[in-house]
């Protein structure tokens, strides 16, 4: 609820000045956010419609950059990869995170230790994770070499070096990095479920599995959404992970829009087309972002109506 401003005659100077503080405090951040969100987006949109090459220029060329972008096979692969990766990465992280959270919720011993183990990858960068996993995937030095040296000579583990499977290497590494985060959120959700509700289900004779499926998981449904939204944040960052893990290869098999934008803008001097690619990334995001922000606004309204 908004606090009613104290109105009336005997308002001191301090109080009147105080009325402006909220606006004064908020203004710089607002201005910065406005420039960052609105101006920068429109700016990039404009560049994407211009004939910018090595340097930005402002000759209007309409949708030419978009046409040449979509005519490019590599871009199409990159765009497909983004959706393929995001879907498996988000579902994978959630599945692993939920499994770990439920297991830890069974009053296991040493809970803090388990949690720390599963959560620490979140603290390190995709660069660090990608680098180290690229060594493990490397057939000459990594897991394959280890197993072969133990005597299984025909063992093959070369996910990241095969163009058909490299994307799975990226997905697995991504899940490793962020499933702990999902676990932490799910665990907190499980802990917030009303114990009476659970007890009632057990008295009714529901099995543990049924209790989870019918009682506990539905009550923490909002957490699923929260986890998904945060994971999409990470999915957008595929630039870091891929840059360190596979550098888009082998061939173009793990190219992502983020990598492609960077290449166009800073390696190949095609700024206009790079901006078009960046706008397409935003479009992909908007598919998720627009419904979600409507949902947030709707929920906030309801929240404030109920005090």
């Amino acid at each position: 609820m908004t606090i009613a401003m104290v109105d009336g005659e005997g308002v001191s100077f301090r109080q009147r000045a105080g009325r402006w503080w909220p606006v004064v405090v908020l203004a710089p951040s607002l201005l910065a956010s406005f420039v960052y969100v609105v101006v920068f987006t429109l700016w990039t949109l404009y560049i994407s419609l211009s004939n910018s090459g090595l340097l930005p220029s402002y000759g209007f060329v309409g949708l030419e950059n978009y046409a040449s972008l979509w005519a490019n096979r590599r871009w199409n692969i990159a765009y497909n990869n983004l959706f393929f990766f995001s879907a498996f990465y988000i579902l994978g992280s959630m599945a692993v995170g939920l499994l770990l959270a439920i297991l830890i919720d069974q009053r296991v011993k040493g809970e803090a230790l388990w949690r720390t183990i599963f959560l620490y990858p979140l603290a390190v960068s995709f660069i660090v994770t990608g680098t180290v996993w690229s060594w493990l995937y490397n057939p000459a030095d990594g897991v394959q070499m280890l197993v072969r040296s133990l005597g299984w000579e025909s063992f093959s583990f070369a996910l990241a070096s095969d163009r058909n499977t490299a994307i799975y290497a990226v997905i697995i590494t991504g899940i490793w990095q962020s499933s702990g985060f999902a676990m932490a959120l799910f665990l907190a959700g499980l802990r917030s479920v009303d114990p009476d509700l659970v007890k009632a289900a057990q008295i009714d004779g529901a099995s543990a599995f049924r209790t989870y499926r019918k009682v506990i998981l539905p009550t923490i449904a909002p957490i699923f959404l929260a986890v998904a939204v945060v994971q999409i944040q990470f999915a957008i960052k595929t630039f870091d992970l891929v840059a360190a893990l596979t550098r888009g290869g082998p061939g173009v098999s793990t190219t992502f829009p983020a990598i492609y934008v960077y290449d166009l803008m800073f390696q190949r001097g095609q700024i206009g087309e790079g901006a078009a690619a960046a706008m397409m990334m935003l479009a992909a995001l908007a598919v998720v972002l627009v419904p979600y922000s409507f949902f947030v606004v709707w929920r906030r309204r309801r929240e404030s109506r109920h005090g």
Partner: peptide, 22 residues
């Protein structure tokens, strides 16, 4: 202020690539 908050919230989702040239 709620509308302004929503505007700021959008910054959370902005992919860095959009902002690179600006």
């Amino acid at each position: 202020s709620e509308a302004l908050f929503t505007l700021m919230l959008l910054g959370v989702f902005m992919p860095g690539q959009i902002a690179l040239m600006p």
